[in-house]
Design a protein around this nucleic acid. Structure first.
Length: 349
DNA sequence: ATCCGGTATG
DNA sequence: CATACCGGAT
């Protein structure tokens, strides 16, 4: 009889586990605050990108109480560039709830109540931080299970089946004894061996138990159904930089697209390109604008093309700038999305 | 240029 | 239950 997949995986993990800033070393007890913070950052974001942000956050806010007491603005600034800014708002709200409770709940259902914590993250925290036998199912685990079981039905239709199979992964006694290691072993395998494009099946500890390896089609799983196309939207923004290097910026509404981030003032975004005359209605002052160029930014559901204008004279008078919604801010004190950074950098801003 | 994904929200 | 949110990888 073949060795159990879980025992193969755990034996591999004991020899190959990655050292990560938020991960307890063997024999140590994980810090739920660090586990939570890392899991929020790791939603939709790769380890290498997260590490410097994680370290900056931990330095700025050594405990959940420090984070709870920080101003949201400051948290958003530290988060700037990491994307999915709702995560930062939820992070802050969650820290305040946890700080009020006094400690991190260990119960999945209580974790699930907290802002920014859903089905996946509640199970990740319960298993990794509190050693409870849950399998946190994310994209990595869906991929592993599709391959191990040789499931060829395409996502997203196959998701229910994949989850059903995945939650059985830790049924064996050995996995039940080491829930925290088991959850982290799944991630390490998915990140280093059972990767999306070119899995290293020859190095995989679970090779002998893997249907996809047997069939030689691991790299083609999981399969996916095809998907639709993106429309294009256009906008015009106006770049004003004063002699101090401060930029004229406004803050987007807290909810919705790029919520809470800072942006150059300009037109709304629409499907039709703007004429110069139309766009200038939205300019902070009426004249002396020069077209600098265009930037393109790709969102999930549309492509954004922004035309950037800048003031032609360095002698403009700040008092002439009629801007009910914008003010000069130093770039270091602003939360700029990647799209806005492109506009500011354009032709060396 | 296209693909990818946890959570919140409608 | 579908869609929006983002930057990074490929």
């Amino acid at each position: 009889m073949k060795p159990d997949t879980a025992s193969l995986l755990l034996a591999w993990y004991d020899q190959n586990r990655r050292v990560l800033p938020w991960r307890a070393l063997p024999g140590q007890t994980p810090d739920p605050y660090g586990v939570w913070l890392s899991e929020i950052m790791l939603q939709q974001t790769v380890v290498a990108t997260v590490i410097p942000y994680y370290q900056r956050f931990l330095a700025a806010y050594p405990t959940v109480h420090d984070l709870a007491q920080a101003p949201l603005n400051e948290v958003l600034q530290l988060w700037a560039g990491l994307g999915y800014y709702a995560r930062a708002r939820n992070l802050h709200a969650c820290a305040q709830k946890v700080s009020k409770i006094g400690f991190f709940p260990s119960d999945v259902n209580e974790l699930l109540e907290l802002p920014g914590i859903g089905a996946y993250t509640s199970r990740a925290i319960a298993s990794i931080a509190f050693n409870q036998p849950f399998v946190p199912i994310d994209g990595n685990v869906e991929r592993l299970i599709a391959r191990l079981r040789g499931i060829e039905d395409p996502l997203p239709a196959s998701r229910a089946l994949l989850h059903q199979e995945a939650s059985k992964l830790n049924n064996s006694a050995i996995a039940q004894e080491r829930p925290s290691d088991f959850a982290q072993a799944l991630f390490d395998l998915g990140a280093t061996i059972c990767t999306p494009r070119n899995p290293s099946c020859l190095l995989c500890p679970c090779q002998t138990n893997c249907e996809a390896f047997k069939a030689g089609n691991a790299k083609d799983l999981p399969k996916r159904s095809p998907k639709p196309q993106r429309p294009t939207r256009y906008g015009v923004v106006f770049r004003v930089i004063n002699p101090n290097g401060d930029i004229l910026l406004r803050t987007r509404p807290p909810q919705g697209l790029l919520g809470g981030t800072d942006e150059l003032p300009g037109t709304p975004w629409r499907e039709k390109p703007w004429t110069e005359k139309e766009a200038l209605e939205f300019a902070p002052i009426t004249k002396n604008w020069q077209k600098l160029g265009e930037i393109k930014h790709i969102f999930t559901h549309f492509i954004l093309i922004l035309t950037v204008y800048e003031m032609t004279s360095n002698l403009y008078d700040i008092r002439d700038i009629k801007c009910f919604d914008s003010s000069f801010k130093p770039p270091k004190a602003s939360a700029l999305s990647s799209a806005m950074k492109k506009c500011i950098i354009l032709a060396q801003g």
